[in-house]
Every structure is written in structure tokens, then in C-alpha cells.
Design a protein around this nucleic acid. Structure first.
Lengths: 340, 340
DNA sequence: ATGAAAGCGCTAACAT
DNA sequence: ATGTTAGCGCTTTCAT
């Protein structure tokens, strides 16, 4: 055996419970108690320990803690694309609410891929996340049967059997239509978001239903998952056979504004444009965009709270569905149509 | 003692090494070896174990692993505001590079506060992150003396003694000026980003230096951390005493475009506008924005790689500084000035 | 009011 | 080629 070296300490420079206990002349149990506010510890020892903790710069080792408690105080956030301002706004509010509740958040980007959804969630599970907030790529439940054994809250998608937080898409579409018809518009164009997800379909449905008279819809086209408008959409737009165009989301609307501008069509004089979401850019561009505001802040907050509630109590029990209100924000991309 | 109950299993439903070992008729060490590709295990047992692992849906427990190895395979990402597209682009590339290397990422938003920088980093450290990628609020090193005992890579800020990844701000400013003068412009306006951070100062300095002749700078004003332009900037802009205006970043440029549009000033016919960063919106708005492209992808990748290199080898050693090139992207917000 | 001690699930020396 | 075993740092039950 090697000679017993007097100098140890070569290992981890991180201060442990043991060292605190020694320095304070108590047992590690006692230190643990005061750190976690458990047990009955005299004010005296409590103070002494607190002092040592501070002096030595002790930090709890959450990994060790997790091994005993089975809880990591980590949640996973699974998003399709954080570069999209819609998602980053939502992510921000989730991050914030998680932190307020003492949770760290793993953020993973699925890049719109089902395969990646499975893969990244597996990684999350290895790290023992206590729960997951998931914004699925589309309405497909890629996690079904993937052995996810922690609570999951789904955002904005329609997956059966999952806790859900969403917004009033249908009402939002309706609000846009009502607003436009109240302004006097009678000939509409509609550029929908990708119709493979329920919320985009609902937005469209709300809009079209509210129009009532089908003949008022001059044209309707779907926008693919890409930055720029389709040739069809551009043609429709510049043909000017509608006095107002509704867009499935603000990104589309910004593309529309851009196309219209380069085509020499004036907004809102020649045509009105309304978006959906109210991403931060909607109020920064020119003209500022009339749009239907998504409750980002509230959605993120509710999603985290719902998750934490599952963690704390009702592991089982009926699925919750929280639906939050939307609101039309009037800006300068809309106006009454010019008199014919 | 309670009667030995035949049914155990009430505890953790998560499959452990032990269970795999039992099912495969080997020791847990052997399983550990094949899982980690260590030791010399016969192809036969290896296969048998792999099969059992799959069948039982085993997942490594990273927390337990971390306790032994002292490595969590987690990095922390500390950002001022992920809602800002500049940051979300950078975040995305970091997230991606981390994952490629087998790391999970804690994302925390400091909301531009020094206090929060300290606070969130403490949280990160409790969870044992192996390293941190930090985009400081400004050039102030709030973490100095905070007892951060893991490698840190700083983005885009000038903090002494830290590993650093940044871009050629000065050259970018210069590129904008050179481009504009080559077009024939001689009267410039400059709206700088907040000058309390070095990179904004460098952008301005590069621009002004390249002008050479001071008299060519008709006016110059600073943009505060807020969404909209100052009254001063608006006045300057609409006074039209410059044929081209350079902006400290794209967000400012978008505000400028918007102000100009509502003031009836045509871009680029009446005045040219150039931004900085090339956030995704720069090419979506109208007119599309001429700007200096930041190498988001490369910066994120390099930052993570630098961090991992520190983790793997040179714990000590001289600080690295990686500076990445920028590039002017010509779009439709700039043109030669109208003949006088 | 405080302490002793049993693990949580894993890795890696060391033994065989 | 494979098994035994000692912890990693913590929480918590049970004693005292």
C-alpha cells in the first residue's frame, strides 16, 4: 500500500456537507436539516452552520440530492425551433416560470423532426427530468409508446390523453373576420399556415365561418414551411382581387407586406392585412401590423404550473385542458376599403 | 420487523443496471462495461446484454453516473434575452453543437440584470454543469470572485482573462462605410447601439474611421435599450440631411425603416439604410435590409468547442480568443444617392 | 436537539 | 473475460 499521504484534497475542490459538518462541529445530518429547513435544530446551531456554509462557499450538490430524493428539479422543454420568435417568446415565459419555482430547464430544439423528438426526449429522460413541456412538431404524437414515465404538458397541439395548454384559435380567426367586415371589407384573401396542424386549421375555420357568406372569400391558399411566399400567393396578392387578406401567422403577414410593397400595392390604402400571433416584430415594422395576439406569457406560465401540479399531486386523474383567450390588436395595416 | 413482503417494486419503476445484470446473468460491472464501451467483453455477452437493455427499456441514470465521474454532461448557457432574434440564433447553434457532443444545455435568461447573472450561475453550479457559455449583459464581469470553478467561455464581450469568442465588429463597421461611400454617398447619419458595450463601440469606430473625413458624418446619435427610436433620431432621420444611415444593429435598422416609411421618405431612393447582424427578419421585411452578417452559426459552434477543449485538456493555459469574420450582405435598402 | 447509518445507481480499480 | 467492491454526496429513518 502506498504510504498514507497527509495531503488529501486532490480530488474534488467542491465543498461537501461533510466539511461543513466538521467545521461546525456537528453531524452531516444536522447540516442537511438546516439546509432543507427540516428537523428541529436550535437557533444557535442553525446560525453557526449558516455561517460556516457561507464562509466555505458551500453549494448543494443537486445530483447527489437527486439520487436520494428521486427528484432532479429539472424540466425539459422540447421545441420545434427556438429561432422562430413565436417560440422564443413562449420559451422565455416558460424558462422564467420554471426558475421562479426552483427548476432548471433543459431546452432542446427538435428542428421540426419527429425522429429528433424521440431522440431528444430520451436524452432528457436519462438526465432524470421531473417533467416535460412539449411543443410537438405537428399533431402527431411521436412520444406515444416511447416509455415516457414523467408528466408531459403539451402546448398548442391537439394530442389526446395529454395535459394541454392552448389558445382560442377559432375565436381569433373569427375576431379577424369580424373586424375586417366591420371595416366594410367584402372581398377577402386568406393565406393559411400549414394545415396539417389543428391550430392552423382552427384559425382558418374561425375566419371562414365568421364570414358567413362563402362568396366573400375571393381566394385561399396555403403557406408552406418556408420563409417566402409561394408564387401562387404572390400572384393572388398582386391581382388585387381582395380588399383584405388574412394570414395564418405574423411571419406570413410580414412576407405579405413585403411582397405588396415591392409590387407597389399600398397597405392599408389598397389592401388591408391582418396577421396572427403578435410577435414582437409585428409592432416594429411598417406599417405596424394589425394582428391577433397570442397570450405567450400566460401560456408559458400555465404550462409550467400545470406540470408542477402533476408533479406535486394528481399524478393520475383526468387530463387538463387550459385554453387561453386571444385578442385583436388594431394597428396600421388595416383600414376601411376605398369606396368603389 | 414487518413480514417480508414478496412484492417489492413499489419504489422506482426505472430499470437499473442491477436488473439488467440479473436478467442477463452477469454482474453489473459487465453491463456497465458494454454500455460504456470499456473493458474487454466477449461479443457474445455484449450482444446478450444489448438485447436485454433494449427489451427492458433501460436508460442510464446520468445523475448517478455524475456522482462517480464528477461530470454531468451538462453545460449552462447564460443569455441576456432569448427573445431577441440575435440571441435566439446564437442559442440555437450552441444548443445544436452541444447536443452533437452529447451535452444537455441549461438555458437561463438574465433579463439584462447583473444580479441575475450571479444568481442564475449559482443555480447552474449547484446542478454541477461542466462548463458555461456566457453572453454577459455588458462588459462588466459580474462573475469575477463568484467562485465559479468551471470553465467559462464568453461571447461577444470584452472580459479580461476569459476565453472569448467574438466577431470582427470593427471590420464590419468599416465594411458598411466602404460600401456606402463606394455607392457615392457623402453625407451620413449613424445610430449607434448602446455604447456601454465594447462591440457596439467597435462597430461605430470602424464605421467612422473608414469615413476618413469627419465632415461626412452629418449626425450621430445613440439608441437606448428600447424598441423604438428616440425623438432625436426620428427628427434627424426625417430632416433628410444624410443620404445614408448606418445602424448599430438590425433591430435599430428596422425601426429606422419603419420611421422613414411613415414619414414618407423612400428607401433606398431618398435615403439608404444599412443594418448590422443579419437577423432572419432582415431579409423578410420590405425593403430587404442591407446589413453586415454576424457568423451566428460559427460563433456558437466555436464557443462550445472551445469549452469542450477546456474540459478535455488544458484546464489551465493561456486564454483563447477566437474572432470570426463578418460579411456585408447587399440587399435592397441601399442604392446610389440621387444625383444632386 | 442531534447523530449514525443505510442506501440511491453508477464507475472503475482490483481481483480472479 | 468477468466479478467484487468501495465509494460519489446526499436525505432520512431510527436511535439516543
Amino acid at each position: 500500500m502506498p504510504s498514507a499521504s497527509p495531503s488529501r484534497k486532490l480530488k474534488s475542490q467542491r465543498v461537501t456537507l461533510r466539511e461543513i459538518a466538521d467545521a461546525a462541529g456537528v453531524s452531516i445530518a444536522t447540516v442537511s436539516y438546516v439546509l432543507n429547513g427540516r428537523g428541529a435544530i436550535s437557533a444557535d446551531t442553525r446560525q453557526r452552520i449558516r455561517k460556516v456554509v457561507k464562509k466555505l462557499g458551500y453549494r448543494q450538490n443537486q445530483a447527489a440530492r437527486a439520487m436520494k430524493t428521486g427528484r432532479t428539479a429539472i424540466i425539459g422543454l422540447v421545441f420545434p425551433n427556438i429561432e422562430n420568435p413565436f417560440f422564443s417568446s413562449l420559451a422565455r415565459s416558460i424558462l422564467n416560470e420554471a426558475e421562479v419555482n426552483g427548476y432548471q430547464t433543459f431546452l432542446v430544439d427538435t428542428e421540426g423532426s419527429h425522429d429528433r423528438e424521440r431522440k431528444v426526449v430520451a436524452g432528457l429522460l436519462e438526465h432524470g427530468v421531473d417533467g416535460i413541456v412539449w411543443f410537438p412538431v405537428d399533431d402527431h404524437d411521436t412520444l406515444a409508446g416511447a416509455g415516457v414515465d414523467v408528466p408531459v404538458v403539451v402546448l398548442d397541439r391537439e394530442l389526446s390523453g395529454q395535459d394541454l395548454v392552448q389558445a382560442e384559435y377559432y375565436a381569433g380567426g373569427k375576431a379577424a373576420a369580424d373586424y375586417l367586415t366591420a371595416l366594410g371589407h367584402r372581398r377577402f384573401g386568406l393565406i393559411e399556415g400549414p394545415q396539417d396542424v389543428g391550430n392552423a386549421r382552427e384559425r382558418s375555420r374561425g375566419f371562414v365561418d365568421a364570414l358567413g357568406d362563402e362568396s366573400m372569400l375571393a381566394w385561399r391558399t396555403e403557406h408552406a414551411y418556408s420563409m417566402h411566399l409561394s408564387a401562387e400567393a404572390c400572384g393572388r396578392l398582386l391581382a388585387r382581387d381582395a380588399t383584405a387578406v388574412a394570414c395564418g401567422n405574423d411571419l406570413i403577414a410580414i412576407g405579405v407586406l413585403s411582397t405588396l410593397a415591392s409590387g407597389g400595392v399600398s397597405v392599408p390604402d389598397d389592401v388591408s392585412v391582418v396577421g396572427f400571433d403578435d410577435i414582437s416584430f409585428a409592432s416594429m415594422i411598417s406599417p405596424t401590423l394589425t394582428t391577433v395576439r397570442m397570450p405567450f406569457e400566460a401560456m408559458g406560465r400555465q404550462a409550467v404550473r400545470l406540470l408542477l401540479r402533476r408533479l406535486a399531486e394528481e399524478k393520475e386523474g383526468p387530463r387538463s385542458r387550459i385554453t387561453l383567450g386571444v385578442e385583436l390588436v388594431e394597428r396600421s395595416s388595416t383600414a376601411a376599403p376605398k369606396a368603389v
